[in-house]
């Protein structure tokens, strides 16, 4: 028996993104990245290398950072997905977003969504990570602009702010070190 494969077929999927259940129809070969951007209009998650190298398409799947360019949309049935659009609490940016903006931890910004989510997963697991742990958590996210130092500082500030909303960046971080 030869079965003809239904190539043009679309599949229906129930998927939970940023706390809301959506029903989406898309072709079965689409990656989660393509489903989020093209079928759900959530373009905060970026297309980068699409080969699993750069990390900018990072989303949280059931709380764990994963690369949406390597996962098929269909694999995510019933899973809980968080994208960068789901970080803010209404009009209030997430402490990570706030500290990235304040400290200039984004330049072109293309890597930022992935780095924010990888950082969120880290802070959810370890609210007070040492610098080495941050480096390891972000080792799969390439940033070609910043040199990473400002990113690490922003993650550290966000970690402090999650405990104390009034925490301020040190003078050295804002003005540089005196020589």
């Amino acid at each position: 028996m030869k079965t003809r494969l239904p190539r043009k077929r679309k599949v229906h999927l129930r998927i939970r993104v940023n706390g809301e259940t959506h029903e989406v129809a898309f072709a079965p070969h689409k990656t989660l990245l393509e489903v989020l951007r093209e079928d759900m209009g959530l373009t905060g998650t970026k297309h980068g290398c699409e080969l699993g190298e750069c990390g900018t398409c990072t989303v949280l799947i059931d709380g764990e950072p994963q690369l949406s360019c390597l996962v098929l949309g269909l694999e995510c049935e019933g899973m809980d997905i968080i994208t960068v659009e789901g970080l803010a609490d209404g009009p209030q940016p997430h402490p990570l977003q706030q500290s990235f903006a304040e400290l200039g931890a984004a330049q072109c910004g293309y890597c930022t969504p992935g780095i924010l989510l990888a950082s969120k997963a880290l802070l959810d697991e370890d609210p007070n990570p040492p610098r080495d742990r941050i480096r390891e958590a972000l080792s799969g996210n390439l940033c070609r602009c910043t040199g990473y130092i400002k990113i690490y500082e922003a993650v550290e500030l966000a970690a402090r702010r999650l405990k104390d909303p009034k925490a301020e960046p040190s003078r050295e971080i804002l003005r540089g070190y005196e020589v």
Binding site: G52, Q66, L67, V71, A118, E136, A137, S139, G140
Partner: peptide, 9 residues
């Protein structure tokens, strides 16, 4: 191996 995001998959 790889990165946290790749190791998760």
């Amino acid at each position: 191996m790889a990165s946290p995001q790749v190791r998760a998959l």
